[in-house]
């Protein structure tokens, strides 16, 4: 219930934060909103000796547009994302996802960067970032690095970030044309985390053909992933319910589903198929199929 003692730094600049990471090694943790880290520290499942609070670094919490991309500062809270007018208009998948994360208080405090960097397999945010083929930017002693969402998640709570890097920004495409998006999740009843969460964005041609589609799946496996097999079966096709269902039935293919007291792997896999079908259906409907 009470974290073990630690030292605390609240740098005013990114450079200072990176320096702190470099000098303290393994025992240092970054603090963003704290909604992934502090619960672990309270249970003493994590006991860093130094906490570097990113909360005092200005500019890490901004959402803006640059060309055909939307730039989201890593410290943007889920609530900022949920309520961002820019995102609601130009990339509604993120607000749709943010809205069902945790609860109001958690969304007020939890950040997109914190969630992605923590890489909890049952977190929601990775799903839309994968679906949108987002780009993540991280800064370390050697400068900035660009990572594709797909290359970012390595496994259970493991990412491609090096111990001295800080995730600073997430870039997602501005959606234009006949696009539809949806995020559907089956929540774990107690925690609200995703047993399975499926994020879909798709784009239709003028004639109604599925020009492009991205599907991100959270909760099912130790790491969130893109359901490429499903995407492939739909790209270039005219979307109809039976095609969608058939394609979605491949969602869990080749995936080793997680199992716990809340859901067996078998059930999770079936939920993933079901929610993928429903999310694709919903996105298609929103795109005007």
């Amino acid at each position: 219930m009470i974290p073990a003692a630690f030292d605390y730094l609240a740098p005013a600049t990114l450079e200072e934060a990176i320096r702190a990471l470099g000098t303290h090694g393994e025992e240092v943790k970054l603090l963003a909103g704290g909604h992934s880290l502090l619960p672990l520290m309270k249970l003493r499942l994590a006991s860093p000796t130094l906490l570097v609070d990113l909360g005092r670094i200005p500019s890490l919490g901004l959402i803006s547009q640059e060309g055909d991309k939307i730039l989201i500062g890593a410290l943007s809270t889920h609530y900022q994302i949920e309520s961002s007018k820019l995102l609601k208009e130009k990339c509604p998948l993120l607000p749709q996802t943010a809205r069902v994360i945790g609860d109001v208080q958690v969304r007020n405090r939890g950040t997109i960067g914190g969630s992605l960097a923590h890489a909890d397999p049952a977190a929601d945010m990775p799903a839309p970032i994968l679906a949108l083929a987002g780009e993540l930017r991280a800064t370390g002693p050697q400068g900035e690095r660009r990572l594709k969402a797909e290359d970012f998640f390595l496994g259970l709570m493991a990412t491609a970030l090096s111990p001295t890097e800080i995730l600073t920004e997430i870039r997602v495409p501005l959606l234009s044309g006949r696009c539809g998006t949806a995020y559907l999740k089956a929540p774990q009843k107690a925690s609200g985390f995703a047993l399975v969460g499926v994020a879909v964005w798709l784009k239709l041609s003028a004639s109604g053909i599925c020009e492009d589609i991205g599907i991100g799946v959270a909760g099912l496996a130790a790491k969130p992933f893109r359901a490429k097999g499903v995407e492939r079966r739909l790209r270039g096709k005219n979307l109809n319910p039976s095609l969608i269902e058939e394609a979605a039935s491949h969602t869990a293919q080749g995936v080793d589903p997680m199992e716990d007291i809340h859901a067996s792997g078998e059930f999770r896999a079936d939920l993933a198929r079901l929610y993928a079908a429903r999310a694709i259906q919903e996105a298609a409907k929103r795109a005007g199929v």
Partner: peptide
Amino acid sequence: TIMLNGAAVKSCTVLTVQAD
């Protein structure tokens, strides 16, 4: 739950130093 800088937060998951 309390309000911190205009937003409802769960004060068991915020460090005092974060509210400085």
